[in-house]
Amino acid sequence: MLHIVNKSATDRGSLESCLAMATKGSAVLLIEDAVYAVTKGGAAAAKIQAAAADLKIYALGPDLAARGMSGRVLDGVNVVDYGGFVDLVAEHKSCQSWL
């Protein structure tokens, strides 16, 4: 299953709720303001790195770039473009947007 999170982890609890309910092997894609969570030194960095042991973590490149965060992405996070976003949706049986 693909989980999509779009809100900053320092603003809302959606990333936390998502990580609690994502089963082992699922994919988590961070878009829009959620991309701040995968940046070095950020408040959610430790949480993301711990989650990356069981989950595949992706972040949307154009949203990182738009926020000046492209150069700060944590190791182990896969950066994808919109085409990669489409592939992730196609590859997983279902997706859930944690609005």
């Binding site: 779009n6 878009i31 829009e32 303001d33 919109y82 085409g83 489409v86 949706v89």
Partner: peptide, 26 residues
């Protein structure tokens, strides 16, 4: 799409997703 234009990024993200999906032959 659950939000209006301009205030939220939702409609922009959806559009760019849709365009990419079409480009990929979906």
């Amino acid at each position: 799409i659950n939000e209006g234009p301009y205030t939220h990024q939702a409609s922009d993200s959806a559009f760019l997703f849709a365009r990419a999906a079409i480009e990929k032959g979906h």
